[in-house]
């Protein structure tokens, strides 16, 4: 049998032409993008004029100044401690909230919607705003930053935990329901064990995220190494700033590597 004998008479088009409405939407989207570029005053000329300034700053950064290394390392440890405690606190609080935000296990639709709304609120307000709020509430220092990171973690993990639980295999849940287990019994016997790999993955990503975020929180006085960086930059001590930036880089890379290794262990363990 020849190829022509079995080939279909007409191949479909590679791309279908858009309809009138779709075409208008594409044009509108492009117009929004152009307007946005205009509103941020983006200019290639301005960028090129700024290049010598960047080169000058980079030149002043080298060699990095190590004279304040002990203080910088202490601030770095404080930054990681904020990330770790904020993540742990957030994870502990996310689980019950995520259960309430799961359609199958929420005791009432109102509770379900309220929990979803709360998680969305925690997630949509940026961590820097939470840090400002907690600096006013509990004062300057790492505790304010830790609370801000915990709230941000609840917003992130609450959503992903709830979605993992919604997607968990219904078979074991039905089996436990059929034998008369309570709602909480079904959740902790069938749903949570099934979601453990997903929970651990999310928790490790969150730790990476909070480590990066904890660096910035110092800018508003919420503890950590951010304030060291701000002071160094404000005083034009770019060589000290370089040391701080390298330390931050090493911390973030170390956390990401460790997290990646642990994730591989979890995946290998099923």
């Amino acid at each position: 049998m020849t190829l022509q004998a079995v080939a279909p008479k007409g191949l479909p088009r590679r791309f279908e032409p858009p309809g009138v409405l779709a075409f208008l939407l594409y044009v509108a989207a492009l117009a929004v993008l152009v307007a946005a570029i205009d509103s941020v005053e983006a200019s290639l000329d301005g960028f090129i004029r700024g290049l010598p300034g960047i080169a000058n700053m980079l030149a002043q950064m080298f060699p990095p100044d190590l004279s304040r290394l002990p203080q910088i390392l202490r601030a770095l440890i404080e930054t990681f401690a904020m990330a770790l405690v904020g993540t742990a606190l957030g994870l502990i609080l996310s689980l019950p909230l995520a259960i309430l935000a799961t359609r199958r296990f929420s005791p009432h639709p109102l509770v379900y919607h309220a929990s979803r709304a709360l998680i969305a609120f925690f997630r949509t307000v940026p961590d820097l705003i939470w840090a400002l709020f907690f600096v006013i509430a509990v004062g300057l220092g790492p505790f304010a930053g830790t609370l801000a990171l915990a709230i941000d973690t609840i917003g992130f993990c609450g959503r992903f935990f709830a979605e993992a639980m919604e997607e968990a295999d219904h078979g074991p849940q039905e089996a436990l329901t059929a034998l008369g287990a309570s709602r909480l019994g079904v959740v902790f016997s069938a749903v949570v064990p099934a979601c453990v790999p997903s929970f651990i993955n999310t928790a490790l990503f969150t730790l990476e995220k909070t480590t990066r975020a904890s660096v910035v929180l110092g800018l508003v006085g919420a503890g950590g190494i951010g304030i060291e960086l701000k002071v160094a930059m404000d005083l034009f001590n770019y060589d000290q700033a370089a040391t701080i930036i390298v330390c931050i880089f090493l911390l973030v890379v170390a956390v990401e590597r460790l997290s990646s290794l642990l994730r591989q262990q979890v995946i290998a363990g099923g």
Binding site: D169, G171, P172, E174, A175, L176, A178, L179, G180, A181, S182, G185, S189, A190, P193, A194, V196, G270
Partner: peptide, 25 residues
Amino acid sequence: GFVFQRHNLVPRLSALTNVVHGAQA
């Protein structure tokens, strides 16, 4: 007691834990 076509056990847990779940009755 209800036995399903697909055993519907919790896969990550041990056989003993899955049987202990029966006590939740």
